[in-house]
């Protein structure tokens, strides 16, 4: 493979390289950043990459925007494929809504937890969870002790016998 062909390959598929690069940046941001807003930004980048991917897909080399021309020579005009644009318009709307909803959630999270770092929020969650677990363990122990007392009273005479045998044989 000659250098020229590599270069050709690269520049010929230029739009895809951009898409992949953008996508990876977005993905990496989502994975690596704790800040919820940054995560959303990463998500947006990721989505934008897909938008670019779709739009570039509809491009035909030498074509113009798909607006119907009238007049002389309009029969020879080469238009870009309009359908991907339309599709991506919908996807953009979805993206905007997602971002808005995500940001709204971030605002609420900030109000509820006082932080928008995911680590802190998770940590706070774990703490409440642990408190709850401990509380529950305590309550369970109390309930069990009470129940054992009760069942010991009720069941005084016909429970399991091993314990008794054991005591007898030792005596």
């Amino acid at each position: 493979m000659s250098l020229a062909s590599i270069a050709d390959n690269f520049f010929g598929l230029f739009n895809y390289w951009v898409v992949i690069l953008l996508m990876m940046i977005g993905f990496y941001t989502v994975i690596s950043h704790d800040n919820l807003v940054k995560k959303l930004i990463g998500l947006n980048l990721f989505q934008t990459a897909v938008f670019v991917f779709y739009i570039s897909m509809g491009k035909i080399s030498g074509s113009t925007a798909p607006i119907l021309m009238s007049g002389k020579g309009s029969e020879d005009v080469l238009y870009a494929h309009p359908l991907p644009h339309v599709l991506i318009l919908t996807a953009i709307v979805v993206g905007v809504s997602t971002t808005a909803l995500g940001l709204a959630l971030v605002v609420r999270i900030n109000e509820a937890y006082g932080s928008i770092e995911e680590d802190d929020v998770l940590e706070a969650d774990f703490e409440t969870q642990e408190e709850e677990t401990e509380e529950e363990a305590e309550r369970m122990a109390r309930a069990e002790a009470r129940q054992e007392r009760e069942s010991a009273q009720q069941d005084h005479d016909d429970g399991r016998e091993e314990e008794d045998d054991d005591r007898e044989t030792r005596s």
Partner: peptide
């Protein structure tokens, strides 16, 4: 509960990635 918020946010990130 306030945990609903983070749950929804995580679902949002994952769901959006899935959708994308």
């Amino acid at each position: 509960k306030r945990r609903a918020l983070l749950s929804a946010f995580q679902y949002l990130i994952m769901g959006t990635i899935g959708g994308t």
